[in-house]
């Protein structure tokens, strides 16, 4: 199962754990499974079916550019961080 680093703001939904193991073949599936195990998390990550504006998902070393379609391996490490890029006004 993939390792998810739980953002601080979501730990109250995850029994105060900072790391949880969650399965999922894609990032979208992983977030669904995270929500099943820890209800309340998904609303902080997704909005209208996509990652929320301002939220970036890092899979292993790199920020995903495929959003919820990003493939996840069993040994993947996932972080949800503040999105940082060039277009913000």
């Amino acid at each position: 199962m993939a390792i998810v680093f739980v953002p601080y703001a979501l730990r109250k939904y995850c029994e105060d754990k900072n790391i949880v193991e969650i399965s999922g073949k894609t990032l979208g599936e992983l977030i669904d499974n995270l929500e099943s195990r820890y209800p309340g998390t998904k609303a902080h990550l997704l909005e209208e079916g996509s990652l929320k504006p301002g939220v970036a998902a890092v899979v292993n070393h790199t920020t995903t550019r495929k959003g919820l379609l990003e493939k996840i391996d069993d040994d993947s490490e996932i972080h949800f961080i503040n999105a940082v890029s060039g277009g913000s006004v």
């Binding site: 990652l51 504006p53 301002g54 999105a83 913000s88 006004v89």
Partner: peptide, 18 residues
């Protein structure tokens, strides 16, 4: 509301009033 631009996010109300 915040809107995803694909390369960042913006609240167009605030952007307009700025």
């Amino acid at each position: 509301k915040m809107v995803d631009l694909g390369e960042g996010s913006v609240n167009f109300k605030w952007a307009s009033e700025k």
